[in-house]
Amino acid sequence: MFGKVLDKIQNIINTITGIMLFTMVCIVFVQVIMRYLMGHSISWSEELTRYMFVWMIYAGVNLGIKSGIQIKIDVVDMIFKGNAIKTVRILEHILTIVAILFAAYGSIMLIKVGFRATSPSLHVPMWIMYLVFPVGFLLDLVETIRRIVIEMKGDEGV
């Protein structure tokens, strides 16, 4: 049940990040057309695409954790077999959780200073931009916990 809700949320996020990527392509293309054909540039477009890019990245990391495409060094897989590898996998996930917690804790302070600055072109308060971190890291955390549960159950198919 909980897993299904999570899947649904992740699918919505993936759709949003996909649309963001499409929008970025359009903005950059229009920027070229405006500068070259109209001789008039939009000054806020670069900043908008950069911030969308950042959001696309940190909102989307959990999708990679889910599908197991995160890049890692796979020496352990060659040394250990069977139950031992299961233990190592769980250890990997626990260390990942510690890393996520470090980053998430740091982002609280970043958001605090974000109340005291605006972006140079769009004049958006910076804390709105930094909000991607608690949101993204929370999703990463939940997804990693799910990996541990799956690892313990020995269910590879989920």
Partner: peptide, 27 residues
């Protein structure tokens, strides 16, 4: 007139050069 000029990301700079007739580009 019409010159494509790279400026810093700042409204005053962007609008200033536009007032002088340039195309201000932020990169």
């Amino acid at each position: 007139s019409g010159m494509k000029l790279r400026v810093m990301e700042n409204d005053m700079h962007v609008n200033g050069w536009k007032t002088l007739g340039c195309d201000a580009v932020t990169m």
